[in-house]
Amino acid sequence: MQREQATREPVIVLEGYSYLECPRWHDGRLWVSDFYTERVVATDGRGTTDVVAEVPGQPSGLGFLPDGRALIVSMRDHRILRRDDSGALTEHADLSGAVSGVLNDMVVDERGRAYVGNFGFDLMGGAPIRYTTLTRVDPDGTVTTVAEDLGFPNGMVILPGGVLVVAETFAGRLSAFDIGEDGALGDRRVWAQFGDTPQSDDVGEVVQQLAVAPDGICADAEGAIWVADALHARVIRVREGGEVVDEIPTGTGVFACMLGGDDGRTLFLCAAPSFAEHERRPVREAQLLAVRVDVPHAGLP
């Protein structure tokens, strides 16, 4: 298929944040984590915002239980927090004994089971790359390792039909798993491969080799996935097998994306000049962008 020509220009929805990640459209608002102000904010997409949670352990992945309560990843203390209707936070699960790095992104299925990634190594401290695990947290807080040997598991989606797709940033691919009735993951396969997977464990070398660095992802009603390419200032729309059928340049780094809005056709983008903590923490240069697309949201989140 010939690649579609993207002529859309992203517009600024919010600005003045540290580093936005893990956007989720829920009940008419976009929820998003701001790493270094340690807040989760919600916006109607028209500039109105509320701080819905303060997470001293640094918020990341977001999701919602079947009853509407929010789950929030607390990265640095390896916990999942649960937010009740009053806004109070309580511990939902402690993953300290199951993970080798700070927690990362998360997707929550329709039964309330959360699938959570972790860094696997000290990215910001310059450590060598180490592949890592994916963890499932059941509604009762039970913690189970469900996949191993993942190259920096990052954004995740659950496609209609029960297929979990996870972005492996430093492996340059999207990997898929079938979700079993009990929540176990099986039949691992490559959903999309972007060039060769780098073989180095040096972050700098890997960054130079990646054709695409898939970060946050979301799915649409045609079964395609929008991918935030963390290294090349763009989002791309990909079909299973790896065909890139659309691309929207952003002019700045983009690290997560989410389809939302009243009709599911607004693509929200978490943008910043870079991802390095020492560059993002002291400044407020992050933005939430939005661009209109043709195919609406589907799947989870």
Rank of each mutant, 00 (worst) to 15 (best):
Q2D: 14
R3E: 15
E4A: 14
T7S: 14
T7A: 14
I12H: 15
L14Y: 02
G16W: 06
Y19K: 11
L20D: 08
E21V: 02
C22G: 06
W25I: 04
D27M: 12
Y36M: 10
T43N: 11
T48V: 11
F64E: 00
L65C: 05
R76C: 08
D77P: 00
G87R: 13
T90R: 10
A93I: 05
D94S: 11
A98K: 00
V99G: 07
G101Q: 04
N104D: 06
V107F: 03
D122S: 09
M124L: 12
G125W: 02
Y131F: 11
T132M: 06
T133G: 06
R136A: 06
V137Y: 01
T144W: 05
G151N: 02
F152T: 03
F152E: 02
G155F: 03
P160I: 09
V163C: 12
V166T: 07
A171T: 10
S175K: 06
A176G: 13
F177T: 15
D178C: 07
I179G: 07
D187G: 14
R189Y: 01
V190D: 01
Q193K: 14
D196Q: 09
V206I: 15
V212Y: 01
P214A: 13
A219G: 08
D220V: 05
I225L: 11
W226H: 03
D229H: 03
L231Y: 10
A233D: 14
R234E: 00
R237D: 07
R237Y: 12
R239E: 12
E240G: 12
E243F: 10
D246N: 13
E247C: 13
T250V: 13
T250C: 10
G251A: 08
V254A: 09
F255L: 09
A256I: 05
A256L: 03
G264I: 05
R265N: 05
L267P: 01
A271R: 05
A271E: 04
S274K: 07
S274M: 13
A276S: 13
E277P: 10
E279N: 10
R281E: 14
V283P: 12
E285F: 12
Q287W: 09
R292G: 11
P296K: 12
P296Y: 09
H297T: 05
